[in-house]
Design a protein around this nucleic acid. Structure first.
Length: 826
RNA sequence: GCCGAAGUGGCGGAAUUGGCAGACGCACACGACUCAAAAUCGUGCGAGCUACGCUCAUGUGGGUUCAAGUCCCACCUUCGGCACCA
């Protein structure tokens, strides 16, 4: 008997599939399409277990759906721009382009060794000119539509990466990539106006039924919508001038006893100019500005507020209240000015008590009368308005509406929605990225590069002698150019784009990756899009997944695509752990896919990774578990080897099909049903695999129970064929080999997914559970479909049951047909 | 503080609609085969007990129900997101 030689089998079939272009996909309107997409990797150099996991999940789906008759597109590519290539360039003295190309070549080999069924004709790499040309084209589209703009702003600066970062790329005040503390800098930078799309990005989350709740909630939190009123306060010492504030509680406007401005508020220097405390306050402001986000937002940071000596005029009652500058007010949210309502906001309350500011209750809780002087905490619930002039007696909900309407009539404010979401800062002061296609001319100002001049090429001769790859400012041949408008001397923009731009549209480029005329072919994009199933790590819940949704919406508004949302269903796969920790070099608990493929084969690795946990949960790597999966595949292999000759002999069976055959057929059809449902509806590959294992156990049991000569060949053949078919998405190489061994000249992956016969699933006898007072007391084997009366009679007739019922009064009986009898006694 | 996910044997996990808790696998133990080992095949495997059965058991405490891992209430723990958010 031939041993299971995984290395030989896997290599042979991989070569065959590649040669026959097995996984090519082309537009075919006669068939339903299915777009299976795994997040494309950064070409770091080698695959890790997280990659192996995501590709295994995607490939099972792709292969399953092909067998189900779908026209499946399953592409792969490279998110190839980014900082690691620059670091590697300095370390190894090799250009980022070369380093990246080598990594891509190596990782592609690794992916192929996993037996993943990609259509390599659709491969894209974001760092190649034929791709970033269109990234630049999309930037220009944004520019034309007023969605790309340059402004001077306080931005996040990572001192370690020496570049600015988007808000989404700052985690707890630190750089998402290197964890260095992020600083604030005033710089002129390019932004994308993602805030214009805050509302659709939020509302359309409701369309995403196939997304995990947690991801939708994370995006919702990030966008951070809050409804309220914008209110304009006058300045007592500067008649005719004003500033505005945002509040979610306009009903408490009469309770305002002070106002607080953010230290960065543009009004601050003017307000304090010439006052006694001018120097003190300016020093305070300067100090706060220097503080990092971490110290400033720390839990224990004391709330400091300094009185400016100036007053704000409440638009609703003309009252003048002191204006303070406070460290707890943030310029980046709302208007950077907050009204202090100590009676109805706990933070304001503590602040007021600490600083001896008056507290005035204007919302009375039901059946209570608050007194500002004596209350011990803020009342933040709803109630009846008091001390609020003509609004007294209204409910707080009604008050919100009325006061806002009143302000609107007076031209002193109105209804307003604020979002936490900020515009996307996309400039990067780095070399290895897509150049921003903009030219600055002294005569014409900021000029977009005309489309026909694209791509704006990165210089490939890179200076590698220093300790970092120089930015594009270093290359005079790149910087100096002619103005596209007037032809005069001009300078190119030297910042490159955030790599998240490149990855915000790659799934569209896959649809027509070689098109040189357009960013993508509209017909092809409309056929394939949206992505039916997207699979990737949860770390992109806000970053990539929000940006890609934004791009999709812009492209749709521009009439370029029909899809409203890019990804219909999303599977956020869990992480791979070992010995209780995430696999990492520093922990020394890394297992590489190469090692597993080498030792056990790709089929074993895939099977284990899918069997160990449901895809969205974290997975605990177990070397012994891998052994187990390998053992299972060897068991399948032996089964096929043992049966092939027996089955090759034709069907002149000595014995007719009997009870054992009937039972086996039922097991086969039940397994097909279970595996189909588990893949299709539940994505529970772990239970699908366990069902296949049960089937294998059943076939072994049959062969053990029935003498070889009496084994019924058609039944055995059906069992083995179905086994191989349902195993094919999980262990594609072994299944291919086994399928041919069973006598087919075609590929198992070109077969139709097996169906099951519901008639065969029916059983003659069922096991019925007998409970007394809900406790299991007996099990009966009865013909299926036994009536309730007969069921009950059979239960009572059972020796043990009748014994337990003696002397008891039966209060009630419950029967579930073919399943259970419960007798309630007293 | 707000929001989300989770908590089941020694371990990974299963139980899809409220109906036999622990499928499948790992580990372990025993048996068969073998001179022996590996591999393989088979059997057992939640805990306790006065043991051919009974009791307890799905984070804790209550509740609903003939019946709860599953539904309701309160709480604990872990993980994740947001957060001086006005």
């Amino acid at each position: 008997m031939a041993n299971y030689n995984h290395a030989e089998i896997e290599e042979r079939w991989q070569r065959h599939w590649a040669k026959e272009q097995f996984h090519r996909s082309t537009v075919d309107p006669s068939r339903p399409k299915y777009y299976v997409l795994e997040m494309f990797p950064y070409p770091s150099g080698k695959l890790h277990m997280g990659h192996m996991r995501v590709y295994s999940i995607g490939d099972v789906l792709a292969r399953f759906l092909r067998m189900r008759g779908y026209n499946v597109i399953h592409p792969m590519g490279w998110d190839a721009f980014g900082l690691p290539a620059e670091n590697a360039a300095i370390e190894h003295r090799v250009s980022p382009a070369e380093w990246t190309a080598q990594n891509i070549a190596h990782m592609k080999k690794q992916q192929n060794r996993l037996g993943v069924s990609y259509d390599w004709e659709r491969e894209v790499a974001t760092c190649l000119p034929d791709y970033y040309r269109w990234t630049q084209w999309l930037f220009l589209l944004m520019y034309r539509r007023g969605l790309a703009y340059k402004k001077k702003a306080t931005v996040n600066w990572c001192p370690h990466c020496e570049t600015v970062l988007a808000n989404e790329q700052v985690e707890a005040g630190c750089c998402w990539r290197c964890a260095a503390a992020v600083e604030q800098r005033e710089l002129e930078q390019w932004f994308l106006r993602i805030t214009d799309y805050a509302e659709p990005l939020l509302n359309d989350l409701a369309l995403l039924d196939g997304w995990p709740e947690r991801v939708k909630v994370m995006q919702q939190n990030w966008i951070g919508r809050s409804e309220g009123a914008e209110i304009v306060f006058g300045l007592q010492e500067f008649p005719g001038e004003s500033f505005s504030t945002f509040t979610t509680r306009p009903d408490t406007l009469f309770g305002v006893t002070y106002m607080v401005l953010a230290p960065e508020h543009p009004l601050v220097p003017r307000l304090v100019a010439g006052t006694e405390r001018e120097q003190e306050i300016l020093r305070f402001v300067a100090r706060i500005k220097r503080e990092s986000e971490i110290t400033r937002t720390a839990e224990e940071a004391p709330k400091i507020g300094l009185f400016t000596g100036r007053h704000a005029v409440n638009p609703v009652n003309g009252e003048a209240v002191p204006i303070l500058v406070g460290n707890y007010v943030i310029m980046g949210y709302g208007t950077g000015a907050v009204m202090g309502v100590p009676a109805h906001d706990q933070r304001d309350f503590l602040f007021a008590r600490q600083n001896n500011l008056p507290v005035r209750a204007v919302i009375q809780p039901p059946g209570e009368a608050l007194n500002g002087a004596t209350m011990t905490e803020a009342y933040t619930g709803p109630g009846t308005m008091a001390n609020s002039g003509s609004f007294n007696g209204l409910s707080s909900t009604e008050g919100m509406r009325r006061i806002t309407a009143h302000l609107e009539r007076q031209g002193r404010g109105g209804f307003k929605v604020f979002y936490r979401l900020r515009d996307w800062l996309i400039s990067r002061q780095r070399y290895w990225g897509a150049p921003i296609p903009i030219v600055y001319c002294d005569q014409c100002g900021t000029v977009p590069v005309p489309e026909e001049h694209l791509p704006v090429q990165l210089p490939l001769q890179v200076e590698l002698s220093g300790n970092r790859v120089p930015t594009l400012t270093h290359y005079s041949s790149f910087v100096e150019t002619a103005c596209p408008t007037c032809g005069g001397p001009a300078r190119r923009e030297t910042d490159t784009m955030d790599t998240f731009i490149c990855s915000s549209w790659y799934f569209l480029r896959y649809c027509s990756p070689k098109n040189e005329q357009a960013v993508f072919d509209p017909g092809e994009v409309d056929y394939w899009m949206p992505v039916d199933q997207y699979i990737g790590g949860i770390e992109h819940a806000v970053l990539h997944l929000l940006y890609a949704r934004f791009f999709t919406k812009v492209l749709r508004d521009a009439g370029l695509i029909k899809a409203v949302e890019p990804f219909n269903r999303l599977l956020a796969q869990g992480m791979v752990y070992k010995d209780g920790a995430k696999m990492s070099k520093s922990k020394g608990n890394v297992v590489s896919p190469d090692e597993i493929v080498e030792r056990y084969g790709a089929d074993t690795g895939r099977l284990f990774i899918l069997f160990a946990a449901p895809p969205e949960k974290d997975l605990d790597w177990s070397d012994q578990g891998v052994e187990g999966s390998h053992r299972f595949l060897r068991r399948v292999w032996r089964l096929v080897e043992d049966c092939r000759e027996q089955l090759a002999g034709g069907d002149t069976a000595a014995a007719p099909a009997g009870q054992a055959e009937k039972a086996l057929r039922r097991d086969v059809h039940a397994a097909v049903k279970k595996v189909t449902g588990d893949i299709q509806e539940r994505f529970n590959f772990n239970t699908a695999i366990s069902a296949i294992m049960e089937l294998v156990n059943a076939i072994y049991a049959y062969r053990q129970a029935v003498a070889p000569a009496r084994q019924h060949r058609p039944t055995l053949r059906e069992a083995l064929q179905n086994l191989v078919l349902i195993l094919a998405p999980f262990a594609p190489h072994l299944a291919e080999e086994a399928w041919r061994a069973l006598g087919s000249r075609e590929s198992v992956h070109r077969q139709t997914w097996p169906g099951y016969d519901p008639v065969l699933l029916r059983v003659a006898d069922v096991e019925v559970v007998v409970q007394i007072n809900g406790k299991l007391r007996a099990k009966l084997t009865l013909p299926a479909g036994t009536t309730e009366e007969e069921l009950l009679a059979a239960a009572r007739a059972h020796a043990r049951v009748s014994e337990l019922l003696t002397g008891k009064e039966v209060v009630k009986t419950v029967t579930v047909p073919d399943k259970l009898v419960n007798i309630v006694v007293r």
